[in-house]
């Protein structure tokens, strides 16, 4: 057993690379899906029925499809649309599509529950349209939604493991490679599990800090 861990330790550089890919995919995916999710939330809240209904259909569709299947659809589907991405980018596109739907749903839920009076005051003071959304509505929505967005971030981190199946060199893929090269399955995968645990705990600590911040602003 000690020998197994020694082999994994000797390959820690590879594992670190995998970890960086996982973290990079998750962070980029998070940023992009929060941006796009905010826009989609605006469409979900649109007064026009056709707009809000088609946004809702988009969200519902992605909430029913498993992430791996979506990753495959992107991986095999984009080339047939003439878009040739490498595996890493295909994976990122899948993450962004998938989580944009989730983020929009989270943000919409919070937005709906937002007290009306702050928005009314902003209207009376001359805020309207995008300025009202960006300066008054969105900051409050983000503060309240932060814990849920943090949970979604953890979900993204875990979903990146699916991308090992389309050969994205993330943490699980690297661990898999080490195990098949040296046959050290227990040590290799356990190392991966512990690294996932570490970054998920980091995100949780971040969420906790934001929650404290949010509590005094409520």
């Amino acid at each position: 057993m000690i020998r197994e861990f020694a082999i994994v330790w000797a390959n820690s550089g590879q594992l670190l690379n995998g970890l960086l890919n996982t973290a990079g995919l998750a962070v980029l995916g998070m940023i992009l899906s929060v941006l796009l999710g905010s826009l989609l939330a605006v469409l979900l809240m649109a007064r026009s029925r056709p707009v809000s209904l088609s946004a809702q259909a988009f969200v519902d569709l992605f909430r029913c499809v498993p992430f791996l299947l979506l990753a495959y659809l992107v991986y095999f589907g984009l080339p047939s649309l003439g878009l040739n991405f490498d595996n890493w980018t295909s994976g990122l596109v899948a993450i962004v599509f998938y989580n944009t739907a989730y983020m929009a749903e989270i943000l919409r839920g919070v937005w709906r529950g937002l007290p009306r009076d702050g928005i009314e005051a902003a209207t009376a003071f001359g805020f309207q349209g995008w300025r009202l959304f960006l300066r008054i509505i969105l900051p409050q929505v983000f503060l309240i939604a932060a814990p849920m967005m943090g949970n979604q971030m953890i979900q993204i981190i875990k979903d990146t493991a699916f991308l090992s199946i389309i050969a994205v060199p993330e943490l699980t893929h690297v661990a898999s490679g080490i195990q098949s090269q040296y046959y050290v399955p227990f040590a290799a995968f356990l190392a991966a599990v512990l690294l996932y645990w570490m970054i998920c705990s980091l995100v949780e600590a971040g969420v906790f800090a934001v929650e404290r911040l949010a509590r005094e602003r409520r």
């Binding site: 493991a161 399955p185 995968f189 356990l190 996932y196 645990w197 705990s201």
Partner: peptide
């Protein structure tokens, strides 16, 4: 709970399947 909740199902499957013979 904390450990399992932050472990991807893919990784867990691989760990169990490939590591069980070694124990």
């Amino acid at each position: 709970v904390s450990l399992i909740r932050s472990t991807p199902l893919v990784t867990l499957c691989l760990l169990i399947f490939f590591a069980s013979p070694s124990i």
